[in-house]
Structure formats: C-alpha cells, structure tokens
Amino acid sequence: MKLKTPSTRGWIVAGATAGIAVALQYVLPLEHHGGWWESIPAWWAVFGGVGCAVIVLVSKWLGKVFLQKPENWYE
C-alpha cells in the first residue's frame, strides 16, 4: 500500500492539534511527577510517537526473523 500525503487541510489540522497538545503542557499549571523525563520537552508526545514506531518496527522485525510462520505451519 502506497502512502499518500494528507491534504493541506489535513496537515493544518494535524499540526495545530499537535501544537496545542504540546503547548498545553506549558500553558496549564501542572503538578510534577518528579521523574527525570519531565526535563525533556514534549516528552509524552515524543514517547507516543517514537514508542509507536518502536513497537511497530521491533514487532515486525521479531515477526520476520522469528515469530511469523505460514498459515499451514501447524498442519
């Protein structure tokens, strides 16, 4: 499946939403966890995006080298 770029409107919506989500962190008066990660800007945004990528890539890699078998593997 070929990846298709979103329309201009799609990009604007995505960018604005992402911007608001990150900006909220600095606009709202937040209590603090006390974790080391709080010093990293937009930590949870990075965590969500990179985490998702890591999950997909690592799982796919594991599937390729080890876990995925043909459908009739047990027959």
Binding site: A14, W44, G48, C52
Partner: peptide, 23 residues
Amino acid sequence: AAHLVEMIQILLFTFFAFYLFIP
C-alpha cells in the same frame, strides 16, 4: 491537568505515527 496533557500527547502522537505506519 498533568494526566490529561500526558494522555492527549501520547494518544495524538501515537495516532500520527500510526498514520505513517499504515502500510
């Protein structure tokens, strides 16, 4: 507020990453 912001960021950016990985 902290929990809400945290979840909003995580969920949104997961969504964005998903968009890239659809194939």
